[in-house]
Design a protein around this nucleic acid. Structure first.
Lengths: 143, 143
DNA sequence: GCGTGATTACTCGGATACAAGATGTCCGAGTTTGAGCGG
DNA sequence: CCGCTCAAACTCGGACATCTTGTATCCGAGTAATCACGC
């Protein structure tokens, strides 16, 4: 029961996209090098984010990825669900109707999801940009 | 990112122990059959619960397991931490100090843990016993 | 100068390889209770 | 009737075996911009 690395990569990628200038799409290679992982693997993650409708891709030269909607409208939960799936974390394997334990666990999950739903990548992206501009350095040092 | 089956077994076992009469220890075989899994595997789970101080074991004939403290004092979080470990669910693998994403994720976890800390197995055990006594049937049918 | 084709820089998806962790089994060892047996 | 031994019913722990899933790579295909070339 740990979050996968893919989720980690996805979150960092999304925050980076949210902090980057809006107009231009950014390629896989760039983001992969920034996080120190192979472009092909990050590509798999990005396609999941595309299918979830969080980002959109443009093929060809100067292609790449960019957010498909406003960064204020993208929550942590959106990203996590895109990667990990939206199913319940706990599944009672016994055959009995209305498992009480299952009920408790679902409620607990929802407490976490409620929190994650309220946090957007915009908050973090803005904060990163502020820090970078204060220090007059490139974004990547903080990222 | 799913809870393991071991956690499922552990929770059911603990609720069962909480619902059972206090005085007598109950053996692995009994609880394993109830959940339809092998005694040897459940044994592994039980030793984790013992090491976490939630239950205690008595070897020998008529031995078995019983709660080591009051069922009102055992929360869901206690059990889950005993099985899954108490480390953070999310771990940023990048090398940068003070990862903002990590911060958000930890807060989210704590929201869930706070809920799980507040729910005890006593609630469920009592509810199960009430249901069983109303229907004048054995506990195991609901379990 | 203009169209056409080749090249380049990208994304996309399937197939595959590898590692780690979850799941489960087997076996030998220790511990307590109780039964059996001999004195 | 007492005490000893032995068997049975338990837990305990290590060493495996297996299966799933996460992690990652490779390769071929598609697509769009740009460059080169010939008319």
């Amino acid at each position: 029961m740990k979050y996968t690395k893919a989720t980690n990569y996805a979150l960092h990628t999304m925050v980076y996209l949210a902090a980057a200038p809006v107009e231009k799409a950014v390629g896989v290679r760039t983001m992969a090098e920034l996080q120190g992982l192979s472009p092909t693997f990050l590509s798999k993650i990005l396609t999941k984010l595309v299918k979830a409708g969080l980002i959109e891709s443009s093929p060809g030269v100067n292609g790449g990825y960019k957010l498909s909607r406003s960064k204020e409208d993208i929550s942590f939960l959106d990203i996590i669900n895109a990667i990990e799936g939206s199913g319940s974390l706990f599944m009672c394997s016994l055959e009995h109707q209305d498992c009480l334990i299952q009920g408790v666990m679902v409620d607990a999950e929802q407490a976490m999801e409620k929190y994650l739903m309220g946090r957007t990548i915009a908050e973090l992206a803005d904060q990163l940009n502020r820090q970078a501009s204060i220090r007059k350095e490139a974004l990547k040092n903080d990222f």
